[in-house]
Nucleic acid binder design. Sequence first.
DNA 1: TTACTAGGTGAATCATCAA
DNA 2: CTTGATGATTCACCTAGTA
Lengths: 344, 344
Amino acid sequence: MNALPEDSVDLIFADPPYNLQLGGDLSRPDNSVVNGVTEDWDQFDTMDAYDLFTHDWMKAARRILKPNGSFWVIGSYHNIFRVGTILQDQQFWVQNDIIWRKTNPMPNFRGTRFTNAHETLIWATKTEDARPTFHYDAMKMMNDGVQMRSDWTLPICTGLERLKKKSGEKAHPTQKPESLLNRVIMATSNPGDVIVDPFFGTGTTGAVAKKLGRDFIGFEMEEEYIIHAKRRIEKITTGTGQAIAVTPSKRSAPKVAFPTLLERGLINPGTMLYSSNSEHRAQVRADGSLISGKHTGSIHQVGASVQGAPSCNGWTFWHFQTPQGPTQIDALRSIVRQQMAEAV
Amino acid sequence: MNALPEDSVDLIFADPPYNLQLGGDLSRPDNSVVNGVTEDWDQFDTMDAYDLFTHDWMKAARRILKPNGSFWVIGSYHNIFRVGTILQDQQFWVQNDIIWRKTNPMPNFRGTRFTNAHETLIWATKTEDARPTFHYDAMKMMNDGVQMRSDWTLPICTGLERLKKKSGEKAHPTQKPESLLNRVIMATSNPGDVIVDPFFGTGTTGAVAKKLGRDFIGFEMEEEYIIHAKRRIEKITTGTGQAIAVTPSKRSAPKVAFPTLLERGLINPGTMLYSSNSEHRAQVRADGSLISGKHTGSIHQVGASVQGAPSCNGWTFWHFQTPQGPTQIDALRSIVRQQMAEAV
DNA sequence: TTACTAGGTGAATCATCAA
DNA sequence: CTTGATGATTCACCTAGTA
C-alpha cells in the first residue's frame, strides 16, 4: 500500500485476520469434524503483536484514503474491539457500526454459549468533518422503502458461490458473501471509484467492484488465493446503468415464541392458564415453559400432554383471565407481531 | 464497590456512560427538537479520560466478581470498542458479544447514515477457564425450541414502563427495557444470586432482579435517579417457586451408571439392545457391561466401537424391546433419577 | 421432469470429573 | 499437569442422488 499515492482511494474494505485462538478439535453431535480456521495467517503470538499488526496496516490504509473516502473493516468479538480502538486512536471517525446478522450461522454444538450468529463491520472516515458518499435513497429502496438500518440480515457464503479447490475443499476458510460487499459498495461509493482491499483473499471485493463498475486494487500474499481470485474475476462482466440489479433481502413472516410474551411484560411468571372448558390448567414459568402436574414443556407440549393428544396448538388452547373473561393467549401474540412488523 | 468483599458477586451488569460526543442540536423533520443525552455524567474531556474512567470502575468490578461469575456491559459504537479492549486487557475472557436489535429505534433524521438500530453487549468471565452459569435449555425454550442466538430483537423502553418525572419528562435519558435485563439475568444467574449494577440509574437491573428472586446491590450518584429507583422497586413482588424456575440443563442432573439399572431390576442380564436402525446389537452382561461380537465394555464404549466413532452417548444410542416397540435405555435412567429425587 | 431424501457444512475462542 | 471415562450436543441451507 505504501507504493500508492496518498489521498488517492475512494473506499477501503478490510477483512483482516480475526486472531481466533481456537482450542482443540471440535466435532458435531454426529461426530463429524468441524473444519476451523487454522491457517498460519491467523496466528499471532500475543494480543500486543496483533495490535501492532493492526496499527501498521491501518496506518498505511489511512494514508492512501481520500479525505472524504470511506473506510470499512469487518471482525468478530475476538478482534473488533482492538480494531475499533486503534481506528479511533488514529483519528478515524466512526460513522456506523454495522451488524451482519447471519441467517444460517454455525450452531454452538456444545450448548455452552449463545450461537455466535453475527459479525461486526465498522464504517469510518478519516476525520469528523469528512463528507463520505452515502446513497441514502438507494439504501432505502433496498429496504422496502424504509431507512436502511445498522443490522443487515444476509446468508453466509455457501453453495455455488463458495469457491472450491479441485479436491472439493473450500478454497478459502472465510470467504465473504457477495451480498455483503454489494451493500457496502453500493452504499458508500460511485461507479468509477477506486476501491482497495488490503486482505484480498479470493477476491470477493474485486468481484463485486467489477460487477458494479468500480475499479479496484487488491493485496494478497497467498499465491493460491490469488489464482482463484483472478480466475473468478475474469468471468465477471461489468454491469452498466440499469443492469445493476439489487436483490432485497426477503423477510419471512415473524415467528413468535411464547416466552417473548414474558420478556415483553405481556404475561407474568406464575400466571395460571386454562383450557377453554377449564378442564386443564397450567402455570407459566420464568423461561416461558409451562408446568401442569408432572408435565412441563412448551405451551404446545403441555397442551398435548394434558389432553393425551399427539400435538396441540398452545396458542389457541390456553387462555388467561382478564376482566373481560378468559382470553386466548393468541391475542397477546398479535401484539408482539405488531411490534416486530414495525421493526423491519 | 471497594467496600464489598472480593470474589463475592455472581453477576455484574454495567451500563456505563457512552461518551456520546454529540454535536449541536438535532431536530426532527417536523422541526421538533430531539432530546439527546447532554447530562454531565456523559461528558469526558478526552478519550484518554474516558479510558481511565473505564479502567478504574472495571477493575473495581473485577475484584468483587466471583471466579465463575458473569460480567456484562452494554454500549454503542462510541464506547464499546474502548470498553471491550480494556476488558480484554484486564484478562476478562469474552464469552459472547450480543446485539440488542431494537424493534423501534430512533430514525436517522438527516438521512446521512444507516439508522443506528442496535446496541452491543459483552458477556465475559474473569478467566478463560471460568465456568459461568448458563441456562442453555431455558434460553432454547425462550427461542421457540432452537438455540438462542447472539442477536436479540427487543423493543426500546417506552410507554408505561418508561419512568416519568412529575413534569412528564422522562426520568432518565437512557432507561433500559426490562426485557433486556430479563434475558441477561435469566441466562446467567440463579435465584438467590447476588447481582451488582455499578451504574444503577433508575434501577432496571434491581427491578428485574427482584422480580426473578435475585438479590442486588446498585450504585448511583444522582439523587433523583435513586428516588425513582426506590419507588419503582418497592412496588415489585418477587416471583416464587415454579414461577421463577427454568428448564434445567441435563448437565446438572445426577449421574447414573448403567449397571444401576440391573441392580434395581429395571433391565435383566442377557437382554438384547439395538441401535435405532437395528444395524447394531449388543447383549447386557450381569455386571452392566455390553458385549457385541468382539467388542465389550460400557454402553458408551461399545456404542462407539460398533460405529467406529470416537465417542458415543450409549444412553441414547441403545434401545430395548417393549410391547410398544423399541425404547431408549435413557427412559430407564429417568426412572432411576425419579427414584433418587424422591429418596432425598 | 418433479419430489423427496440423504448427506455435507459454515471465522468456533464449544465439557467435566476423577484418578 | 495429563489421561481416560462419561455423556451432552446442531441450524439453515445447499447439492447430489434416487424415486
